[in-house]
Amino acid sequence: MLETININFWYGAFHALKDISMKIERNTVTAFIGPSGCGKSTFLRLFNRMNDLIPDTHLTGECLIDGKNIYSKTVDVTGLRKNVGMVFQKPNPFPKTIYDNVAYGLRVDGESNRGLIARRVEESLKSAALWDEVKDKLKKSAFELSGGQQQRLCIARALAISPSVILMDEPASALDPVSTSKIEDLIHTLKRDYTIVIVTHNMQQAARISDRTGFFMLGELIEFNDTKKVFLNPDREETQNYITGRFG
């Protein structure tokens, strides 16, 4: 379970996240929506501490995964990132073979048992619904795949190290409609085994795939509720305006 308590975040002097508290249950799909620059991606990247890579940032508040504060001094960040996988906006396979891409996370974790790696690679590619398309060319460069296939490869790569949470930052925004619907189907299946948090610009997508939806605006969490409720009967006027397209 993910939980944040009074999270505030600054890029330099810019106050990007304002006092955000929320709880995300296990094995659910949670969507974050909101206009560009509202902080939803920044908030997403808190959960695997990717914001640590950006210089001159500052955080207050607590961010808990299964009750443990992931920003406490004793937390091993690489260990955290093994538990919290991430899929990026643009597919970013490594300049390596398809096989090596999926095996990468296991190998940097020190796994050297080839049989085990081969098994995990196959399982992960199957879970990412990519196995049938690539099983005959595992030793080919990942760049030979189409954009949609590359994104599923990145999902497989994240699954290979058996995370419990998967963060997705607009995973389908660079893809065509067919590839997008494949990714959405995939998210539906993955929900059984993983907790998924997804940032999306596409409100129909949020409505289709998520159980809960959070609406962000100007660094604040305006509303966080069951997806049906947010889209059919939101509590706040700003949410209503945004989903009906009056701004944003």
């Binding site: 695997n48 990717m50 996988g85 990026f88 396979p93 490594f94 300049p95 990468y104 940097v108 994240a158």
Partner: peptide, 10 residues
């Protein structure tokens, strides 16, 4: 590339 690698715990 770097971000992808960090995100996998490297």
């Amino acid at each position: 590339f770097r971000q992808g690698s960090y995100a996998l715990g490297a």
